[in-house]
Nucleic acid binder design. Structure first.
Lengths: 149, 149
DNA sequence: CTACGCTCCGTATAATAGTACGGTGTCAAG
DNA sequence: CTTGACACCGTACTATTATACGGAGCGTAG
C-alpha cells in the first residue's frame, strides 16, 4: 500500500516536515493515528489540501488563528448551520475589505507603472494615497483633538 | 505652531507610540530631526500616511520588508524610472496573485453562505477547494517522486 | 542482517513584529 | 516654580510562526 508519510505530505504541500508537526500541535490539522503495530503515520490527501490552504491564507494576511477559524467553517458539515453561516459572513466581510484594499494597491501600482515608462519624472504617483480608505476596526481615539488645541 | 508630536502622529495613524519608534528603527519611516534647541520632534502628515499604509500592507500579508519595498517605489520621484517601473511590475504581479486567491476565497465563502441558510446539511462546500490554484514560488522540489517509489 | 534514510518526539533556537519599562528631559498649565 | 503629562532613548520582554537538533525507532534496498 502506498503510504504517505509526513515527509511526502510535507513535500506535496510545499512545506517542511517540522511545519506540518507545528500545525498539528496548533490544532490546524489532525495528526493521523499511529498504526496499531506501531509504524509510521499515514497522511491522507486531505491533510495536504489543508496545509496548502493554510499557506495561502497566511499569504493573504490571515493569522494562524484566523486560518483555523476559516478551516472550522469547512470542517463540520453537521454543526449548526446558522452558526457556520454567521461566521462565514463575518469572514466574507474581512475578505471583501482586504480585496478592496488590494484593488486600490493594484490600481496605484498600475498608475505608477503607466506614469513611469516614458520620460517624465513621475511626479507624485503616490502608492500611499492608494490605501487611504477603509480603516479597519475603530482604533482607540486617544482623544483626537486634532486641529483644536 | 501646531506641533505634531509622536504621540499625536501615532494616535492619528491608529498605532502606539512604540510602534512608530519601531518603524523608525526599521527604516520604514523617517525620524524627523530634533529641533536645534532640543525639544520634541515634529511629525509631518506624510508620516501618518506612511504608517497607515504600512498597517494596510501588513493586513494584506506583506512583511515589513516587502512593505518597505512598496514604499520605496513611492519614495524616490527622481530615481531611475526604469528601475522603479520594473520593481512596481514585480509587486503588481504579487498583488494580482493575492487578489486572485482572495477572490477564490470570497467565492467559496459566498457559496458556503448560499448553501447554508435553508435547511440542508451543506454537504461539501469546501473552502479548502477554493484555494487550490496559483502555487506561489516554486518550492524546493525535495525530490518529488510522488507515486513512483 | 546491515546500512541508510526516514519517522517520532521533546525540546531548543530563530526571525519577525511588535510592546513594555525605567530613567531623564521638556513643555505647558496652574 | 511646581506638577503632570508626555517625549526621548536604550534595553528588555512578549507573541507568533516557524526551524533546528538529537537520540531512539522503523523499514526497505542490497
Amino acid at each position: 500500500m502506498k503510504m504517505m508519510t509526513i515527509g511526502k505530505a510535507a513535500g506535496k504541500a510545499g512545506v517542511g516536515v517540522e511545519t506540518v508537526r507545528f500545525y498539528e500541535r496548533q490544532g490546524l490539522i489532525e495528526q493521523p493515528p499511529k498504526p496499531i503495530n506501531g509504524g509510521y503515520r499515514d497522511y491522507p490527501e486531505e491533510t495536504v489540501r489543508r496545509i496548502r490552504f493554510i499557506r495561502q491564507a497566511r499569504e493573504l494576511g490571515f493569522s494562524l488563528r484566523e486560518t483555523a477559524e476559516l478551516l472550522s467553517l469547512n470542517a463540520d458539515p453537521s454543526t449548526d448551520c446558522a452558526d457556520v453561516r454567521e461566521r462565514a459572513q463575518g469572514k466574507l466581510l474581512e475578505v471583501e475589505r482586504k480585496a478592496a484594499q488590494l484593488d486600490r494597491m493594484r490600481l496605484a501600482l498600475e498608475r505608477l507603472i503607466a506614469a513611469c515608462p516614458g520620460q517624465g519624472a513621475l511626479k507624485a504617483c503616490s502608492i500611499i494615497e492608494a490605501l487611504k480608505g477603509g480603516e479597519g476596526v475603530a482604533v482607540k481615539p486617544t482623544q483626537d483633538k486634532e486641529t483644536t488645541p
